[in-house]
Simulated scan of single mutants.
Amino acid sequence: MKKLLVVAAPFSAMLLLSSAALAGESSSVNGVISAPAADLKWVELPRSGGVKYANVRGDLTGKGPYEAFVLFPAGANNPYHNHSAAIPTVVIQGTFYAVVEGKRTEYPAGSFYDLPGKMNHYSGCLPGMDCLLFQYQKDHFDLVPQTEK
């Protein structure tokens, strides 16, 4: 397990940096895109229980592709839902989880997962530490509530 984290953490950081390097709304000098943490503009998602996002490229709440940091309060849980498009996610801080087809998987900092579009699941952040994620999609973000079977 330690060996996996040693490999996963640098890979996740590389993904994060390469995604940030493509950012259109962040500052750009000589082709280098920059999104320092101090410059991120955090916005709370309405009716989300305190979930916040900071766009790096595009707009998480707009139309079209986006790349954004997402901050889940510790202990926050999403209802049963899906997303119209796949949602690749890098966990930077905390431990995020997803329950797919009854199987719960926990993703500590340094983890990556990619849920296919229209896959029903639960997700959330374990208590103890807020979860900082980096997410991106080819098209707009949505959270489509589903009825439990």
Rank of each mutant, 00 (worst) to 15 (best):
L16F: 06
K3E: 12
G110E: 01
R47F: 01
M129A: 11
A38S: 14
L45F: 08
V144K: 11
N55G: 01
S26M: 05
S48A: 11
F134A: 04
F134W: 02
P65N: 08
G110I: 00
Y113S: 08
V91A: 02
G102H: 13
F72S: 00
D142I: 01
G117P: 01
A68V: 07
V70K: 01
S27E: 08
F96R: 02
G24P: 10
N30C: 12
A20D: 02
G49R: 03
V29D: 08
S48L: 11
S123H: 13
S84E: 12
L4T: 14
A21T: 06
F112Q: 04
F96L: 04
A54Q: 06
F96G: 01
V100R: 13
Q146W: 02
D59T: 05
Q137D: 05
K63C: 07
R47H: 07
P36N: 11
G62R: 07
L133G: 07
G24Y: 00
Q93L: 03
H121M: 12
E101V: 12
L15S: 09
V70M: 07
S123F: 11
A109G: 14
G128D: 09
L15A: 08
K3S: 12
K149L: 15
L71G: 00
Q137M: 10
G62F: 06
T105G: 03
C125R: 04
K41S: 05
V32E: 15
T61E: 10
V90L: 07
L45H: 01
V32D: 13
F141A: 08
K103W: 04
V70C: 01
Y113E: 09
P79T: 15
S27Q: 10
P79F: 13
A37V: 15
V144P: 03
G62I: 05
L126E: 15
L22C: 06
P116G: 06
L15H: 06
Y113F: 14
G49A: 13
S28R: 14
I92Y: 00
S34V: 11
V99D: 07
G49E: 12
V6P: 03
G31T: 10
E101A: 15
F112W: 10
L115E: 10
P10L: 10
A68W: 00
N55E: 04
V51A: 06
H83D: 08
L133D: 05
G31M: 09
D114R: 13
F69E: 04
N120K: 11
M1T: 09
K63H: 07
D114Q: 13
V7L: 04
E67V: 07
G117M: 10
A68C: 07
R57H: 02
N82H: 06
S48M: 11
D142C: 06
F141C: 07
G50L: 12
D130F: 08
A85Y: 03
V99N: 04
L133P: 11
Y113W: 11
G124M: 05
T105F: 01
H81I: 07
G102Y: 06
P116I: 02
V51C: 10
M1I: 02
A8N: 14
Y66A: 00
F134V: 06
R104K: 15
P73I: 05
N82Y: 06
P36H: 08
S19A: 15
